[in-house]
Design a binder for these strands. Structure first.
Length: 510
RNA sequence: GGCCCGUUCGUCUAUCGGUUAGGACACCAGAUUUUCAUUCUGGUAAGAGGGGUUCGACUCCCCUACGGGCUACCA
């Protein structure tokens, strides 16, 4: 019988969750949904020094925005509550005591300076391995090197201590990874990691293994940065007698910076001008505000689609995947091994695709939002019409307003490029006639605007092409934009004649 | 330095021993749009290097190079 799928996303609230975390959460979520399993959110806040207020809420809000639903865990509760590791402190004690009893862990009393001295010493001796471990632990101050009464005395005198894992010597430790296959490490190269800190809090390693066991996690899907400590985790499962309950591991390839090399960081994102956080985040110390994907205009479906493809692909040529399609197609086996460089242009392309796929009526809401901020009123119907016109030239929702501004606000300046090149006597004459002809019309449609223009240009034997740009400049102030005739229909006869008149008066003839 | 992981067009990737090495983004060109964008068509562009194994290697093995991660009482 196979274990029910129970996966967890386990971020630590040490700052804003970044885009890579969303991808990790997404992969967990996709597997959970596909297998009818459970998606768990656990907060790994064992480092009290690095706690950042608001970070946990940020995680919750970000996941919700991305459409990643939590079935169990922080924020929703569940049978294994609490889901915040700081509130589970009492649980870890029991297991670390068990490890002490079974001689798989020991007390260590060394100060920071003593550890540093040990490292310096080993380094000076030309030793490659400068870790606190098999090669060095007997020369340190711990319950292995000290006799029982010395140890007891130190503990009773209140000397601060940590508990370290006693990593076995001379053994191969094998990590079975769903993405990487078998990873084998010689145990002597592992160090005696601290399991319990002097403040009584567990470290990641202990808390993680204990919680994954208690919460009956079936798959540990996390970033590749954890691969080096996975052997220790495997050892811990064995030491605790849980080897049969050990989850399957899947270490995800990292998200790399777009140029050069290295892990994607906030710095790179800032430098290249794209967001790193799903939502806007204000740093509590610097008060610096980092704009999020949401606020930058990325649609959550688009971002999710983009992220899913950074390290995974379905093996077909389909690229646009809604969440439920991702759920159907996802598989851990098809996740790549190599790190993926982050390409914001592709993210923008996905965003474009998702915007285009929306109905004009839905798009209209984006425009209406912008308009209400500008205190401009507009009917839903008209907004939809404008969005339809703009749809194919837009990447972000806010572009609708940016590109339709001229519909609502008459130009106050005119594009220099066009006026200096095209605004000549001929254009002015044609535009004057055209305006007069338009005035005669009872109603204006795109077709009529066009036929009237053609009529005027043939009468004056001028090519229509020469007039189009001056006309656009007069009406919109800009050099480019959506279909001019369709725009005129929306603008209406009155507004058009007014704008042409104004342009004729204001723009100097070249 | 040590340990571990990785390496196909500029980027994301397909290929699970036999392909003219495919697609997408980006880029370039042409067509359409009497402008721009869109759209359409086409194009440039890749198996890090060296050894094996094999009738045959991008695919399997080894070495080298390069890249990345880890190396905290951080996760």
């Amino acid at each position: 019988m196979t274990k029910p799928v129970r996966v967890r996303f386990a971020p630590s609230p040490t700052g804003a969750l970044h885009i890579g975390g969303i991808r990790t959460a997404l992969y967990n979520y996709l597997l959970a949904r596909q297998k009818g399993g459970t998606m768990i959110l656990r907060i790994e806040d064992t480092d009290q020094n690095r706690f950042v207020p608001g970070a946990e809420e940020f995680i919750l809000e970000s996941l919700q925005w991305a459409g990643i639903q939590i079935d169990e865990g922080q924020g929703v509760g569940g049978p294994h509550a609490p889901y915040r590791q700081s509130e589970r402190k009492h649980l870890y004690k029991k297991y670390v005591d068990q490890l002490i009893t079974s001689a798989n862990a020991y007390y260590a009393f060394d100060s920071e300076a003593e550890i540093e001295a040990m490292r310096d010493r080993l380094k000076a001796e030309g030793n490659d391995n400068q870790q606190y471990g098999v090669h060095s632990r007997m020369s340190m101050k711990n319950s292995l090197s000290l006799n029982e009464s010395e140890t007891k005395q130190l503990m009773e005198s209140g000397t601060s201590y940590v508990i370290r894992a006693k990593v076995i010597s001379g053994q191969e430790v094998v990590v079975n990874d769903l993405i990487r296959g078998t990873v084998t490490v010689w145990s002597d190269t592992l160090d005696d990691k601290v399991l319990m800190k002097s403040d009584g809090m567990p470290t990641y390693h202990l808390a993680n293994v204990v919680d994954d066991y208690l919460m009956q996690i079936s798959h540990v899907i996390r970033g590749e940065e954890w691969l080096p400590s996975a052997p220790l985790h495997v050892l811990l499962y064995h030491y605790l007698g849980w080897q049969n309950e050990m989850p399957q591991f899947a270490h995800l390839p990292l998200l790399l910076k777009p140029d050069g090399n290295g892990k994607l960081s906030k710095r790179d994102a800032d430098k290249m001008g794209f967001p790193i956080f799903p939502l806007t985040w204000k740093d509590h110390h610097t008060n610096e505000v980092a704009i999020g994907y949401k606020e930058a205009g990325y649609l959550p479906e688009a971002l999710v689609n983009f992220l899913a493809f950074l390290g995974w692909n379905p093996g077909t040529e389909q690229e646009i995947f809604a969440m439920d399609e991702l759920i159907d197609s996802f598989s851990l086996e098809r996740i790549g091994k190599a790190g993926a460089k982050f390409d914001i242009q592709k993210a923008q392309w996905f965003n474009q695709q998702y915007i285009r796929a929306k109905a004009n009526e839905d798009l209209a809401n984006y425009l209406l939002d912008s308009l209400s901020k500008e205190k401009i009123t507009c009917s839903q119907e008209l907004a939809a019409k404008i969005c339809g016109l703009l749809k194919d030239r837009v990447t972000f929702p806010q572009d609708f307003w940016l590109q339709s501004r001229f519909f609502f606000i008459a130009p106050t300046s005119y594009d220099e490029q066009v006026t200096s090149k095209k605004w000549n006597q001929e254009a002015v004459t044609v535009l004057g006639h055209y305006k007069d002809q338009l005035k005669q019309l009872t109603m204006l449609t795109a077709e009529l605007a066009k036929s009237t223009l053609e009529k005027v240009t043939t009468e004056l034997t001028v090519s229509t092409g020469k007039i189009l740009q001056p006309l656009r400049v007069a009406l919109t102030g800009g050099a480019s934009g959506p279909d001019l005739m369709a725009s005129m229909e929306i603008l209406g006869k009155e507004e058009i004649t007014k704008r042409i008149e104004r342009a004729l008066k204001t723009i100097p003839i070249k």
